[in-house]
Each structure stands twice: as C-alpha cells, then as structure tokens.
Simulated scan of single mutants.
Amino acid sequence: MPGPTIDVRELPPSQRHPKIHNAFDDLESGEELTLINDHDPKPLFYEMQAEVDAFDPEGYNVERQHEDKFVATFPKK
C-alpha cells in the first residue's frame, strides 16, 4: 500500500537518515515509504535491514531515474 514520499536531495547528509527513520516509523503496517535520493540508498537499505525489525527487505525496490535521482521504496511489515 503506498504511503508518503519524501525527497531528501536538498537536505544536508546529517539530516537525511533521521528524517527517513521518522517517516518510516510513522507508517502503518503494510504501507511503504518512497524515498527520492541523489544516490543509490543501498547503505540505508543495509542499515534498515540490520536495525529496523518492521522493515520488509523482500519488498525493497530502487530505480535510477536520472544520474542524480534514485527512487526507492521501503515497505513496512
């Protein structure tokens, strides 16, 4: 089920992960957070997989739409 979309490309790097984690925490079970980023969010994927029990890594998806635009979905169990 779709959920919110957040674009973190304009945020300083130090503010990105806290904003993403807060948005993910606000999701209901079965929803997904769509993230727009300026690089492949693979490090965030590994962080979420290791630290967030509610993250569903099987449903994760990322698409590179431009050289500096990656759109990823982070589903919540």
Rank of each mutant, 00 (worst) to 15 (best):
P57A: 08
R16V: 02
F74H: 01
L35H: 06
P2R: 11
E51N: 15
K69F: 05
Y60P: 04
E10Y: 00
D56Q: 11
V62Q: 10
E10A: 14
P12V: 06
M48C: 08
H66A: 15
D25W: 07
E58N: 10
G30N: 07
P57R: 11
Q15W: 00
P12E: 03
H66L: 13
E32D: 11
R16A: 02
N22M: 13
K77G: 14
N61V: 14
Y60D: 03
Y46C: 02
K77I: 10
E31Y: 00
L33W: 05
H17F: 12
V62F: 00
V8G: 10
N22V: 14
P41S: 07
E63Y: 01
F70T: 10
P12Y: 00
D38P: 03
Y60A: 10
H66S: 15
H39R: 13
D56G: 07
R9T: 05
G3K: 04
V62A: 11
R16Y: 00
D53C: 02
E63C: 04
E63A: 11
P4L: 10
P2I: 08
D56W: 06
G30C: 11
D68C: 08
T34F: 10
L35G: 03
V52Q: 02
E51R: 12
D38N: 15
V52G: 00
Q65S: 09
H21L: 15
F55T: 01
P4C: 06
D26T: 11
E28M: 12
P57S: 10
F24P: 05
E10N: 10
D40K: 09
G59Y: 01
E58F: 14
E10M: 08
E32Q: 15
T73M: 05
E47R: 15
A72I: 01
E51K: 14
V71A: 00
R9F: 04
P12T: 03
E58S: 10
F24K: 07
D53V: 10
K42Q: 11
V62W: 02
P13W: 00
K19N: 08
A50S: 14
P43R: 04
F55W: 03
N22G: 13
M1T: 13
I36G: 00
E67T: 13
E47C: 11
P18S: 01
Q49K: 15
F70M: 07
D40F: 01
V52P: 00
H21E: 12
V71N: 05
E63D: 14
E47K: 12
E67I: 14
P13K: 09
P4G: 07
V62I: 13
S29Y: 08
A23H: 04
P75N: 13
I36N: 00
L33C: 05
Q49H: 11
D25E: 15
D7K: 01
A54R: 15
N37E: 04
T34H: 05
K42C: 05
L33N: 02
E32V: 09
G59P: 10
E58Q: 12
R16E: 00
D25Y: 09
S29W: 08
A54C: 01
N22P: 02
E51F: 03
E67G: 08
F70Y: 15
A54T: 13
V52S: 00
E58G: 12
V62T: 13
R9C: 04
P43V: 12
Y60K: 00
L11E: 02
V8A: 09
D53H: 06
